[in-house]
């Protein structure tokens, strides 16, 4: 059990927690938070990969780009959630029953 293994395990657990949040919560903003939580772990993995393979500068540029993407995803997710709130007056996922086949 060295450092890399521990960090990998922590990251995997965090991705698991984020995906759990995506699948199991009822609150729309909370789902977006779940995405961000999982992205944190992915950021850690990218830097870890840079340190292991000896190209840390490259992975730092990746991390910076990922952060921009993350922020925009948060904007779009929050915007859609706010739009749904204006329609339904609540942020409950269980309201979403319009589309069925």
């Amino acid at each position: 059990m060295n450092l890399v293994t521990v960090l990998l395990i922590i990251g995997l657990l965090m991705i698991f927690a984020g995906c759990w949040c995506l699948m199991r919560t009822y609150h729309l903003l909370k789902i977006t938070i779940g995405i961000e939580v999982a992205m944190k772990a992915v950021t850690l993995f990218l830097v870890l990969a840079g340190r292991i393979s000896g190209s840390l500068a490259l992975s730092e540029t990746f991390v910076i780009t990922v952060m921009v993407a993350e922020a925009i995803v948060a904007v779009v997710g929050t915007g859609t959630a706010v739009g749904l709130f204006r329609k339904y007056g609540s942020m409950d996922v269980r309201n979403l029953k319009q589309l069925k086949g």
């Binding site: 922590i10 657990l13 965090m14 927690a17 984020g18 759990w20 949040c21 919560t25 909370k30 938070i33 779940g34 939580v37 944190k40 772990a41 850690l44």
Partner: peptide, 9 residues
């Protein structure tokens, strides 16, 4: 990081 992340969820 893990603890705060789980707290957020």
């Amino acid at each position: 990081m893990l603890i705060f992340g789980v707290y957020a969820v």
